[in-house]
Amino acid sequence: MSDDIRASEVLQGGVVGPQAPPEQEPPTENLARRELAGTRTLWGDAWYRLRRNKMALAALTWIVILVAVTLTADLWVPQHFGMPNAINTATAEANQFLGPSLGHPFGTNQLGQDMFSQVVYGARVSLSVGFLAVAIAVVVGLLLGAISGFYGGLADTLIMRVADVFLAFPYIIFALLVLSVLPRDFVTGSILPTVLTIGVLGWPSIARVLRSSILSVKQNDYVDAGRALGANDGRLIMRHILPNAIAPILVYATMSVGGAILTEAALSVLGLGILPNNLSTMISWGQMIAQGQPYLTSSPGVVLWPGLAIVTTVLAFTLLGDGVRDALDVKMKD
């Protein structure tokens, strides 16, 4: 993200985005109920506890609604509200800055485009960026974290020092430079460059989380037992170590989705985000804010709606992450 998350990056060994600090809720009455319910898996328990957390449930519901809306958008949004990036230069001036109405629930923007349609399609871009960037960070982070934690030695030292370098690099400056370097043909009309940049910059924190859980799991008897039975390294990691290290990663990843969305928005404001294209439906909330900012004083709506969309979505991922953490009883310590 930006200046403001750097502190938490330093504290917690780097994040893809804002992340809640270590917190521990006191044990709830769930334990007793769990006993009564008899045989449940770890995940079953977690799901049970998550459902009882009203905030997390509300957050999950909001995310499900967003996903559903973006997936079905093509079926109903353009028909009623227009394509998000459509421009008609002949009517643009007459249609700009219209207030909210039935046909334009969020009004129109400076180019006479329907803001509701833009916010809906913007969700598609924001969610894709969030999920994909975190996926990249998780894949790279898991791979390097596993090597680092499992094998130790030179590989560990090397990987952890490279991670230090990544974390020490001023985040937004790095992102600006990387995005300036990427070939423009590749960048145009695609979310890939932004996703790659945010994702690649996010791996060190995942690697660190995994590494420390591997270090603590590695000492356990069942790992030794597995090794004694002749399991190879890959099998040990996949079957024994990862399942036990996955909980903190999951919590971490959930919260990072919001962070990635914020980062994309910040890059858009600095002129390096995802671009609209009137031949496609691609539009980013950050872009909407960046393009609407000059008109803020006369038409605050152009900045208000995409801003609210970002806030509610990021908030949902934060609260869901809180809920998942409590449900899995993860202590977020590095």
Binding site: A266, V303, V311, V314
Partner: peptide, 15 residues
């Protein structure tokens, strides 16, 4: 505090 964490900084600043 959850909401504050979710606010894009530039957006907050502009608002």
């Amino acid at each position: 505090t959850s909401i504050l964490v979710a606010l894009p900084v530039f957006w907050l600043g502009v608002m």
